[in-house]
Computed example of a mutant assay.
Amino acid sequence: MTSTPTDYSEKRDFIRMQVDAGVSLIHAGQVVAAICLDLSSSGMQIQSPRQFKVGDNLEVHIDSEHPALTGLQASTEVVWIADQPRGQQKLGLRIIRLI
């Protein structure tokens, strides 16, 4: 019996779905337009044009393009940050609860 190496992304506890959808991030009363890159049952990865800090709480809204489906609204916490060019960031968000 042989085993093939498993890619790290396949070792996750939760399957991530590639999304590439526009989202609204709400922080301290300000709304920031961003992009959701991927989504799982426990979190999401966001491309943000604005700087945030680990520990920031963000409300996330993803509208549905399908009339039969409601969008996603969640309270989240920033758990990791990767700085990007031009002052942008990739954010790892943990879903605290669905709204």
Rank of each mutant, 00 (worst) to 15 (best):
A33S: 15
F14A: 04
I26D: 04
Q30S: 08
V60W: 03
V32T: 15
S42W: 02
N57Y: 07
Q30T: 07
R16P: 08
H27C: 11
L39A: 04
C36T: 09
L39T: 06
A68N: 07
T70W: 00
E65R: 14
D38Q: 04
R16D: 04
S24H: 10
K11E: 15
R16I: 02
N57R: 15
D38A: 06
S3W: 05
V54D: 00
S42P: 00
S48V: 10
Q47K: 10
K53I: 01
E10C: 01
K53R: 13
V54Y: 00
S41Y: 01
N57Q: 12
L37M: 08
S64E: 05
I46C: 06
G55R: 00
D38R: 01
V19L: 13
D63R: 15
H27V: 12
D20V: 04
V31N: 07
A34I: 07
L69I: 12
V23A: 15
Q30D: 08
I62P: 02
S75L: 12
Q47R: 12
G43N: 04
E65L: 13
S75D: 13
F14G: 02
I62K: 14
K53E: 07
R12G: 09
R16Y: 06
L58Q: 09
F14Y: 13
P5C: 03
S41P: 01
D20N: 13
L39V: 04
S24I: 14
S64N: 12
Q30I: 07
R50Q: 14
R16G: 06
G71K: 12
Q73W: 03
P49L: 05
G43L: 02
Q18R: 09
D63V: 12
Q45K: 15
I46S: 03
H27Q: 08
V23Y: 05
E59S: 11
F52G: 05
S64P: 11
D7N: 10
E59G: 03
T6Q: 09
H27G: 01
